[in-house]
Structures are given as C-alpha cells and as structure tokens.
Design a protein around this nucleic acid. Structure first.
Lengths: 334, 334
DNA sequence: CCAAACAACTTAACCGCTTAACCTAGTGAA
DNA sequence: TTCACTAGGTTAAGCGGTTAAGTTGTTTGG
C-alpha cells in the first residue's frame, strides 16, 4: 500500500507521535528532530492520509456547498469564492450538484453528513425542512439563501434584490422612462418572486404604475417571445426590465427582430451581471449581485458558526450594484 | 459525538459486523435481522462515517478532477459530466480548481493523494511532469487532456480539434469563402496551438493560403481589437475564424463597430459552443466539443484503469460537431 | 445416525492517524 | 545539593468502520 506515518517514523528514527507533531506544527518537537522528520517526509514523498487524519482527530475540517446546477452561470463564481475562502481558512471543500432534483438534494445532504462536514452552504431552493432539521440535529453549521430565518446553527445569506431592483428603476426613471415593463420568471422560485415584488414596489414608490408584467421562463426562449410581444404593445413601454440576464438577452433579440432599436427606441435591463450581459450586443445594463462574495461570505459564516461554542446564526447581506451597459439610455421623445 | 455503527448495533441487538454487512449488502445477513438493522438505521437517522469507511476498507472509491478555473465556461459542463458519471459508477467525486496557478496545481494533486483517490482527471495544462510521475508512482489512475501519450495508469483524452476546424473550413469553403482570417490565442496553450495548426493545415488541404493570422488573448478584448483591425484590412477577408467563442464575440463586436454587417459583409466563427455563441447577436457559428462527454469519458477511463488488474492506458477521442449560427453565410460577391 | 456443510451471526484485529498520559534528561531556583 | 519544571520525546488507546477467522445451531449427504 501507500506510505504511512510509520514508514516516515522509521526512516527518521522517531515515533509516529513525533512525526504527527511535526506535521501538525504543534511546536512540541526540537529543531533537529523537526528537520530530520521533514527531510524523511520529503525523501519518501509522503502525504498523510486525509481519512485517517479526519477520523483520528474527529474533525473533518471540511465545508460543503450544495448548488442546483454548476452549469447555471450563477453558480461557478459562488463555488469559486466559497472554495477559495474555505481553503484560506484551512478547510477542505466539497461540492454537490443536485441538478434541481429533490432526491439528489437529499443525497447531497447525506453525502455532507457522511463526510462529517463542519458546515454546509445550501445554495439551492429545493431543500426540504426535514433536511434542515436533520443537519441542525447533527450540529452541522448551515447557511441558506433567503429561505428560513437565521437561528442557532443556521445563518442566512440575503442577496439584496430589492436594492438592485431599486437602483434599476430609479436609474430608468431618471432617464425619463415612465412605462417600464417587467419580464418575470416562474412564480415558484423565491428569488424571482422577490425580484418581481421589488420591481412593483419600487415603481409605486416613484408613483409609477407597474406593468405590463409578462411571464417568461427564465430562459432565452421566454425572453425572446416576451420581446416580440412587447414590441407589439400599444402604448409600447419605453423600457423593459428582465428578471435575469438570459431573459434580457432573449428580450433584446425579440425587440431587435421586431425592428426596434436598442436603446434608442427602447431600453432593456437584466439582472445578475453574467458574462452574457457583458458580451451581448449591445451589452446589457444589469445588476451585479457579487456572486463570488456570496460564496466567500458563506464560507466565513460557516467558519464563524462552527468555531463558536454557542453558535448564534446571523444574517448576512450581499450588496447589489448597478452595472451600466449599452442596452439602456434616455427614454425616446413621445 | 455523532452516531456510530455501535449505536445502531446496540439498537438492533446485533454486532457491528452485522450492521456493516447489512449496509454493504454483502448478502450474509438473514432477512429478519437485515430488516431490523435497517429500521434501527432509519429510526436513529444514522449515516456511516465516510472517513472511517474509506480507512477501514482501504479504498476511497473516490475520483478527483482538477480544472484550471471553474468560472471558465469550458469547465462546468466537464465537471458535471464527470461528477454524474462518477456517481453512477459508485464513486465519490472531488473537485479542485487551480486558478491557472502551478502552486495551486501542486496543492490540488497533493489533495488528491491525501484523499487517496483511485484516479484523477487532469483538465489543466499547468501540470508538471514531476507531478505526473508522483501520481503514477502511487498507482493512481490518471487522465490527461492532450498532453502526454497514454501508458500504464495513464489514459489520454483527445478532443478532436482538427476535425472541428476542418468542418468549419470546409463549410466556409463551400459557402464561397476564400480569404479566411484566423484570430489565435496565446501561443503557449497546447489547445490553441492545435487549433491554429489545424486551421492552417485545413486551408492548405483546400489549396487556400492561410492568413492573415492575428494573435488575440483568448478574451473578449483581444477579439475586439482583432475585429477592428480586420475591418481595415485590404483586401478584407470574407470570413474570420476565432480560436474560441469569447474571441469570436469580441471579433463580432469589433466588426460591427467598424460598420460591417455580419454575415452579409463578413462571416465570423467561434469554437467551443458556449452559451455565449448561442446567445450572441447574431448567434455564432461554432463547434461543439461535447464537454459533458469529455467529463463522462474521463470518469469512465479512470474507472476502467483503476478496476483493471494490469491497467493499460488508452486514448479516448472526443468528437467535435459543427453548430451553425447566424454569424456566417455565403461569401459576399466581389 | 454422524460428520460435513452451511447459514447466520460474533469476535477482534486492524486501517493510518491523533493525542492524552507517561517518561527522562537537563536546567534553574532555592 | 535538592527539587520542581520544562523540553523533547515515547507509548498506547482510541477514532468508526471493515473483514478474516471463529462460533453456533441447522441441514444434508452417505
């Protein structure tokens, strides 16, 4: 089999405890011995077995992250932020993808328990309350996105959708837009509902009548259809806010197809600041929700929770930032 | 602490060995006992400790995948394909992101060794030969992308860049294009060199003079600059092949900015079939290299290697497929 | 009818590490 | 000189599983 700590101990002429102490930098070992052990490690090419280490120390020093779909452009940056921060804090990170499937979500949670993670960041919405309790019962730190309130071992991450929407609406208002349509996503998803409601509230706050609201599908096709529909409306809106960038790209294409000019005839905005927004033609005005920061904060939150003797879940807010693109401009003269 | 197999054994009134046999479905346990154990497991909410299991069985049943950058749109689908297939085959999968950093690549490889993986799929180019040997010495199965030849514990995955490029060149040729420019990436990366060389060879095979070749940076900005430069050339190429989709989007924007119409005045093609290509305006003609299949095949290859008694590395070929978009069309009349 | 074979367990020795408890010089204070 | 520390180790008992070997009670072939 592979090399063990005993091989190193033998090679360095010391006990396994000493090797372990060197490897873990406990400072209980003299300079000479320390050096000897280290060179034996190097010479043999030894790497400690993570499983044995975790088992013996009864601490996995592992954080988990569960996402719906790593292919969804929302998640890679979150994962990267999480993983990077976790490593900085000295944790190993494991990732599970649920593919929007509740059964796979269950499996993902089980995997986290089997790996004895200290904490898990749940970035999906398809999580059941039963699972949450299951994790809580095991005193595993948890962070959620928007779902439940924070308490005990559970911290909450809140993306400030409202602020993001507000920034868009106020920006469009300042540019002279008064008829601002909204292309929504499926009603089920919390984040989409939040976006729609924020839009409506912000409109009212500016004494504007919300609507028309068209329901898309969060995908390109839905946006395309919505764009074509909007082009035919009378009176036509002077701006269209889409629930996300992908929808916005669809809307944009639909409007262009109908012969409208963007942004001269009509402005379009997205949400999420994905690469799509940046590389679209014209680039899309959107809102950055700092996905990398979201991942980082999740790792920080889990670290805090799992390190505390009496953990007290907090709420973390992730700020949103307006990103101006070429798809929006002053409202056309009537 | 958490529940152990002993708790379950006690609750079911059997030995830990029996519980283990039930959990591992060895078929050595009677129906009644089997059932009793299972209900005890369910009642207590027990999940076996993965670390202990791996340690005791001296088999991690884990596959690893190392990528350069999960945020790079090339990788998420690869990772997903890998992870999905690995799970189907009964493996746990772990992911490491090197961020293009050789030091982090080293750390990633070490992590794989510490986790005692059966095999690791290396999807980055920043891997050193030392590391490869290190892994081979430990009898860890390995797959590479294009780098070394297959042998022993090492299988090779080959993306058929040549076929992809050939399909584009022949398609453009059939559409009447004769002056076809190429926007390359940095010379260092193997995959980019392969694309450029394939382009040149395919051109010559059709009795066309390759060039001009403009060097971009694999990013949007490089494409943009290249597009603007190409617009000014005389005689102007009637088609531009870009080394990847991102570059193609940049080229597209550069050409449009210079007042050219795509595809009426000039055709543009990309490579990789990312979402960018699909959602670009106009959508980009590109080549799909089946990234999910790449991930799957990597998992399959590792499974095969690690299961074999006398492993013999193979070469796997991932096919490329032309995807027609709206950015290409017949060559303009002279 | 008895020994061999089998089904269905239990016992206990690890797997590769960590860590509490113990040991042994050597040092400094009284 | 004596004694309490301390520095720098060693010993050995786990961590939570797996699994080879051993132990039963029950069949079954000759």
């Amino acid at each position: 089999m592979a090399l063990t700590i005993r091989d190193v101990a033998k090679a360095a002429g010391v006990s396994t405890a000493t090797v372990s102490n060197v490897l873990n930098k406990t400072g209980k070992v003299g300079r000479r011995t320390h050096h000897n052990v280290l060179s034996a490690v190097k010479k043999l090419g030894y790497f400690p077995n993570a499983h044995a280490r975790h088992l013996a120390s009864r601490d996995s020093r592992t954080l988990g992250i569960i996402v719906s779909d790593i292919v969804n452009p929302f998640f890679p940056e979150v994962v990267k932020g999480f993983e990077t921060r976790a490593r900085q804090l000295g944790y190993d990170a494991i990732l599970s993808d649920t593919n929007y499937d509740p059964r796979r979500t269950q499996e993902a949670a089980e995997r986290m328990m089997e790996h004895n993670v200290r904490g898990v960041a749940i970035m999906t919405s398809e999580i059941s309350l039963r699972l949450i309790h299951e994790l809580a019962r095991r005193r595993i730190a948890v962070t959620f996105l928007d779902l439940a309130p924070a308490r005990g071992h559970v911290s909450k991450l809140r993306i400030d959708y409202f602020s993001g929407m507000k920034q868009i609406v106020e920006y469009l208002h300042k540019m002279g837009h008064r008829r601002i349509a909204f292309v929504a996503g499926r009603a089920k998803l919390k984040s989409n509902v939040a976006r729609l409601e924020s839009y409506e509230k912000c409109m009212r706050d500016l004494d504007l009548e919300p609507g028309p609201v068209i329901t898309g599908d969060l995908r390109f096709e839905g946006g395309l259809a919505a764009g074509e529909a909007i082009a035919k409306l009378s009176p036509r809106p002077t701006a269209v806010m889409a629930v996300n960038d992908l929808t916005a790209v669809g809307v944009l294409k639909g409007l262009l197809k109908a012969g409208l000019r963007v942004p001269q005839d009509i402005s379009v905005t997205g949400f999420d600041n994905t690469r799509l927004a940046e590389y679209s033609n014209p680039s899309i005005t959107t809102v950055d929700v700092h996905r990398d920061m979201l991942g980082q904060m999740a790792a920080d939150a889990l670290h805090e929770l799992s390190a505390a003797s009496k953990p007290h879940g907090r709420e973390y807010q992730i700020p949103a930032e307006l990103i101006l693109g070429d798809s929006s401009g002053p409202a056309p003269a009537e």
